[in-house]
Each structure stands twice: as C-alpha cells, then as structure tokens.
C-alpha cells in the first residue's frame, strides 16, 4: 500500500511542471557542488573555501578569459560561485537538518508525554519564538564572532521551534490512532513507540518544511553577510560576493557581473528548493487530497 502511495505521489510530482523545473535545477546544483574541485581547482587544497586573491586592486574587473565571471573585492567570482554552491548546500542542509532534529526531539517529547513536560517545553518554545528570527540570529552571531559556522549555530539555535510545534501537533493527532493505543496497551516502551510508530507518521510534513526552509536559510545567511555579520570576507559564499557588489551597484557597467552571477545562482538555488517544497506540500497537504 505504501508503495502505491509513493508511486502515485511520484507520478503526481512529475506531472507538475514547476516541480520538475525545481528538481532539474536542484540536480544541476548538486552536480556543480560535487564536481567543484574539477570545475574550479583550488589553489590551496587544504582551504578550498577561501577564494584565491586575483589582484591587489579593489576595483571590480569585468569578465575575461582568465576570470570568466569577473573579479570583485580582489576575488574571482567564478571560483566563488562554484564553491559557493557547496557552501549553500552546507548552510541549508546542516541548519535545516539539525534544527529539524532538535525540533523533532522537542516536539515528540512534548507531544507524546504531555503534562508538565509539554508545558515546560512549549513555554521554552514560546520564548524562542517571541524573538524575530533575523534579529535573534544577528545578536547571537555578533556574540559568537565572525564566520559561517557561527552564523549556522545562530540559525540553528533560533530555528527549531517551527518543527517542534508541527511535530507536537501531529503527534497529538497520531496518539489517538488505534495502533498507537494498541501498542501502548501492549506495554511497548515509550521511546520505541515514538520511534517506530509516531515519527514515521509525522515525518512527511517535516520534510516539506525542511525543503521550504532550505531556501530561506540561504537568504538569511546572505542577509547577515550583507549586514557585515556573515562569513569572513574572501569566503566562497554567494552572500559575501553579493555584499561586495553592494557599494558598486549604482554603476552598472562595473557591477553587473558581481550581482548577476552570484545573484542568479542564489535566486535559482532558493527557487529550486521552493518549487520542490511547494510541490511536495501540494502532494502531502491532506486538505488538497481527494
């Protein structure tokens, strides 16, 4: 039955042209990320994420055979865009993944046990939720210091609450289902019930949520870079490249390449995840089934 479900959903997914477009883009980025060392061989293999310096001059240089995407902030944009793909995946997967795991743990504990555990955990969730995400991430990044890892920590710390609430809500529903009640009556251990029965039945909405968050996380990281809080200058990261172009923007002939290449890469990357996420949501959204 499950196989039928998957088959049906896969068919539904591929019938949706926007979803296919998203998937195609995603595959494209995965290929670039995987083959980055071949496409743009690093100068210093121990430190491939540092874009090598192309020139001492701070003036941007338009594309040339040597630097196909041009140079901004002394750095080769092509190199930055290619390796930035890996960075984007890293930011998205690590932050969305870890915060989802934290969310799942918090949510399942809360939803399954209820009572005072639920009360305490949900109040903690409320506290974290009552700070705007960007502002909270900004404060924590400033406190932790510069660097992409710090940005990611900050985004994880303030990024798990949505999943926690989602999981909790779903668990409260699932808990009333026959098979869970039966397992409980048979005396199966709580942790086993959560792992075996509850989570698999609530995981799809989380996957949708994670895929939808992937894009916005990359944007948030870029926004932090723009405010001067993101990755170190010279780090292969689209947001950092874009923030270089910030002060050249009013001169189109000097800046178009530094906005267009990393900008398009970023918009397409985010778009890919959003399209896929959107399609997944269409499929898994129970309200639209029928």
């Amino acid at each position: 039955m499950l196989r039928d479900e998957i088959k049906k959903n896969t068919k539904k997914f591929f019938k949706n042209p926007t979803a296919v477009l998203g998937l195609f883009l995603l595959v494209f980025f995965i290929i670039i990320a995987l083959f980055a060392p071949l496409i743009a061989p690093p100068k210093d293999p121990n430190n491939p994420y540092r874009i090598p310096i192309a020139t001492w001059s701070l003036e941007p240089k338009p594309p040339s055979p040597e630097h196909p995407f041009g140079v901004i902030g002394q750095r080769d944009i092509f190199y930055g865009v290619i390796w930035g793909t890996r960075t984007a995946f890293r930011i998205g997967l690590i932050v969305a993944g870890i915060s989802a795991i934290i969310g799942i743990i918090m949510g399942s504990l809360s939803g399954y046990f209820g009572g005072w555990i639920d009360e305490v955990l949900m109040r903690i969730t409320d506290i974290f939720m009552s700070l705007p995400f960007l502002v909270a991430a900004m404060v924590l990044t400033t406190v932790l210091g510069k660097g992409l890892d710090k940005v990611m920590i900050a985004m994880i710390v303030f990024g798990w609450m949505g999943t926690a609430r989602l999981i909790r809500g779903n668990i409260l529903q699932v808990k009333e289902e026959q098979y869970v009640l039966a397992a409980k009556a048979l005396g199966v251990r709580d942790s086993l019930i959560i792992l075996k029965h509850v989570i698999p039945n609530t995981i799809f909405p989380v996957i949708v949520q994670v895929s939808m968050r992937m894009g916005s996380l990359v944007i948030t990281a870029a926004a932090l870079s723009f405010l001067g809080l993101g990755a170190e200058p010279g780090y292969a990261d689209w947001g950092t490249l874009l923030s270089y172009s910030r002060n050249w923007l009013t001169q189109f002939d000097k800046a178009w390449f530094s906005i267009v290449y990393p900008g398009v890469a970023m918009v397409l990357f985010v778009l890919a995840w959003n399209l896929v996420g959107d399609a997944l949501r269409d499929i898994f959204d129970p309200r639209l089934r029928g």
């Binding site: 310096i53 001492w56 701070l58 902030g73 002394q74 510069k146 001067g228 200058p233 010279g234």
Partner: peptide, 13 residues
C-alpha cells in the same frame, strides 16, 4: 577588523 578593506588587504599581502 572586518569592514576595513585596506587593513585586510595589507594582511593578505
């Protein structure tokens, strides 16, 4: 100190 491009380039050089 970040934001100071001249100092950064001096260090890089």
């Amino acid at each position: 100190n970040t934001g100071n491009e001249a100092r950064q380039t001096a260090a890089e050089m």
